[in-house]
């Protein structure tokens, strides 16, 4: 019998930063251009199996999606309390969206009592010119990385449309929680993908609601 651990993960970020799309892609493996804005919050879960040599662990990710509309901020503590990981999303092509990241970081640092690991997630790489998209990066990767380093946070980039980096992100969250070391995230200039070491095998089964 594998050891089973459950951990709460919350997604935060400005409206339209792609939180719901990220979760829908991860849980249901689909992408839709027009995802309805989240009202209040939504919950889903997925089980990640981590195998590292002899050691096996199952991590159940209890994922809370939150509303990006600033109006819901007063209710946010209800959804992020007791989280052991927070994924703070921003749209890579939208400076305003990035500016909101710091708001959530400060809020979590101030209000979450236990150790909550921070992940800063730049979304929608498919829209960037360097990936053949129409838009320019609104914020340079060096700036985000310096910021993330200061916070001891991890920085990843994803695209829900092209399914880029998403499984890796949640694997990383699960592995960090279980105390497994996946191959450290390589510097973003080298590769935006997280490399998975050969000896660590990750299987997933999922279940979703919301």
């Amino acid at each position: 019998m594998d050891e089973v651990h459950t951990t709460k993960v919350v997604l935060l970020g400005r409206t339209g930063s792609g939180k719901t799309s990220l979760i829908v892609r991860y849980i249901s493996s689909v992408f839709s251009e027009n995802v309805k804005p989240t009202i209040g919050a939504a919950f889903s879960k997925k089980t990640v199996q981590l195998i590292h040599g002899e050691e096996r662990k199952q991590v159940v990710l209890a994922i809370w999606d939150t509303a990006g509309d600033e109006r819901y901020e007063s209710m946010a503590p209800l959804y992020y309390r007791n989280s052991s990981a927070a994924i703070i999303c921003f749209d890579l092509a939208d400076r305003q969206s990035y500016n909101k990241v710091d708001f959530w970081v400060k809020e979590l640092v101030e209000k979450v009592e236990q150790n909550c690991k921070l992940y800063i997630c730049g979304t929608k790489t498919d829209l960037l010119a360097e990936y053949g998209g129409p838009l320019k990066r609104a914020v340079g990767p060096t700036e985000v990385m310096a910021y993330a380093k200061k916070l001891n946070a991890k920085f990843v980039e994803t695209s829900s449309k092209s399914n880029y980096g998403i499984d890796d992100l949640f694997k990383l969250v699960a592995a960090d929680f279980a105390g497994f070391t996946l191959c450290e995230a390589p510097p973003i200039e080298d590769s935006l993908r997280l490399q998975e070491p050969n000896q660590t095998d990750v299987n997933e089964k999922s279940s979703c609601c919301f």
């Binding site: 829908v24 849980i27 249901s28 689909v30 839709s32 995802v35 309805k36 997925k46 089964k205 999922s206 279940s207 979703c208």
Partner: peptide, 13 residues
């Protein structure tokens, strides 16, 4: 409870 993971809201044929 099945572990079916479809997100019904986003399926369109």
């Amino acid at each position: 409870m099945s572990d079916d993971d479809s997100d019904r809201d986003d399926s369109i044929d």
